[in-house]
């Protein structure tokens, strides 16, 4: 069975989705990722979907699930590199992916994660100000 590789980078996990997901693959990813977060006690998860041309409600739900699951395991999730067409489609579909952090590219996502973890516990307000306004 195909699997999406999950790479570990310091405190973070990096997932680059290079193929169009079918349901089984997405469900596997969800399970694997949660396992990895617990095993490595990662503090952040970066999902790069720049190569994904279609995100439907099922995929959207998986992304939302991953974010929520990681959240309760104390890891932040950032989705990076969404295609413009995908973003427009998701909005039209009625799926704004509330509660999922997004960034333009892997670099910016990394910065976002670093600052989220850095500011954790110190200054919650500032974090809110910068990324959630």
């Amino acid at each position: 069975m195909d699997r999406i590789p999950i790479l570990r980078m310091g405190h973070f996990l990096l997932v680059t989705i290079q193929v169009d997901l079918y349901d089984r693959l997405a469900l596997n990813l969800e399970a694997d990722l949660v396992q990895m977060v617990s095993k490595t006690s990662a503090q952040g998860v970066l999902i790069d979907i720049s190569a994904v041309s279609i995100v439907d409600s099922f995929m959207g739900r998986i992304i939302g699930n991953i974010a929520s699951m990681c959240k309760i395991m104390d890891a932040h999730t950032v989705v990076v590199g969404m295609q413009p067409a995908v973003a427009i489609t998701l909005i039209e579909l009625g799926l704004p992916l509330k509660g999922v952090y997004t960034a333009l590219d892997v670099q910016k996502g990394m910065n976002l994660l670093t600052s989220m973890i850095g500011s954790q516990g110190e200054d919650e307000d500032e974090e809110e100000d910068d990324f959630d306004s």
Binding site: V79, A87, I91, E92, P96, A103, G109
Partner: peptide, 13 residues
């Protein structure tokens, strides 16, 4: 609002 939400999904404000 749609435009704003789509921009957010891309990771911009």
């Amino acid at each position: 609002m749609k435009t704003v939400s789509a921009t957010r999904l891309m990771g911009a404000e």
